[in-house]
Design a protein around this nucleic acid. Structure first.
Lengths: 218, 218
DNA sequence: CCGAATTGTGAGTAAGCACTCACTATCATG
DNA sequence: CATGATAGTGAGTGCTTACTCACAATTCGG
């Protein structure tokens, strides 16, 4: 999955929504696709239901038949992907920490690569999340509780082991997660929103992971 | 200036706008104040001119007398502060690099402290920028050209010296700036939007600066 | 203290908004 | 092929939106 590949990203979101809603009627599918792109491009508030219906080639009423309200449409796009962000993401992180050979830097790099791939796979939705999170408390709660809470609980244990074995200076899991996430999101924004073009993911991740690992050596 | 202090932040923005527009009529001042807070809380698109006028205690027509359109109102809030972000910010960075004793970590920490103070001083406006940047190409250009361009040109020279003297492994200025900015913005968001409360700025900045400096030692 | 500029407003207006409803088309199943 | 359910829609609904305008109040240099 390349960073700029919207088609596959839309397909991935559609699959996630379908898993949550059951088989999708064709026009319902079209609405989801159109809404996803409109919201990502212009933001939720600046997108009208008329604009979505036109882009989907559907009557405006069809949106409300399937989703009731505009706010519900947003939530039913975001929730299934958020759900996929939690469970499999956590399992993946745990596997990486268990499998990868002792080297902390390699573990961090593999986690970053995996999360970057996730962000690419659901690119338009990540864009929507970044835009709406500061003003939509409902989304705020959705992520805070499940995603971040779960990750921190896991990291607390994983980092604790590293610290106990003297491979890492003592650092609270939330702080570690915040710095790792900041760098990764900052990179994702730079690569896919600010200056799309030639980026060497492997080199950039190596730099960031190296920075973290070397900077946190005891 | 404490992180949560809105009153002083509003005053600072008002001063910046006044410097650009000349002496402000009292109701014009009230509109700026109200718009600033409304945009920061709910986003530009979700804020109606009626809501602004009510918060300002002003007739809706007064907004259009002074600012013409809603879009212009936003730009005339953002531009003066963006202007203050460029010139003085650059001079400040140069001074810090020139004054502070050889230690790269201390230089980075001082730069971070200064930029954090700036973000606090103009907190509501920073919030608006973070929300609107992805969907407003006009703001995008405003920052990209002047702020980032200028900073990178300066950093290129400053880092070049460090590298030449063997105190820093070779790293392109944009990459350095991106990582530094990501961590700092990530911290600012965590501290003033996600989980406001007790934060030890000095310790957090020391951690981030140490990470960068140690991670980038040759 | 006068006249002109500036500041401020109540009462609009047309277009756009999210959303409803009565109705038709499609389709799986007994 | 009849029937009930699901999918889809054109034509609205009332309300909100950004914005206008004629006119009133205030300010201020000459």
């Amino acid at each position: 999955m390349k960073p700029g590949d919207l088609t596959e990203a839309v397909t991935a979101v559609l699959a996630a929504v379908e898993a949550a809603e059951g088989r999708l009627a064709p026009k319902k599918r079209a609405v989801i696709e159109a809404a996803l792109l409109c919201f990502a491009e212009s933001g939720y508030a600046a997108t009208s239901t008329k604009a979505i219906s036109q882009r989907a080639g559907v009557a405006e009423a069809t949106i409300f038949r399937h989703f009731g309200t505009k706010a519900d449409l947003l939530l039913r796009l975001v929730r299934p992907v958020a759900a996929r962000l939690i469970q499999p993401g956590l399992v993946e992180a745990q596997e990486i920490f268990a499998e990868t050979e002792g080297n902390l830097e390699a573990k961090i790099a593999r986690m970053m690569t995996a999360r970057l791939a996730f962000a690419d796979r659901y690119a338009p939705l990540v864009r929507i999340l970044l835009q709406e999170l500061p003003v939509n408390p409902e989304l705020h709660g959705l992520l805070q509780d499940s995603v971040i809470g779960g990750l921190i609980r896991f990291l607390d244990i994983a980092l604790g082991e590293e610290i106990a074995q003297g491979r890492l200076r003592p650092i609270p899991a939330p702080r570690f997660l915040r710095i790792l996430a900041s760098m990764l999101i900052g990179y994702w924004i730079a690569r896919s929103m600010v200056a799309p073009g030639e980026w060497d993911d492997e080199a950039e991740i190596a730099l960031m992971a190296g920075l973290l690992a070397r900077g946190l050596k005891p």
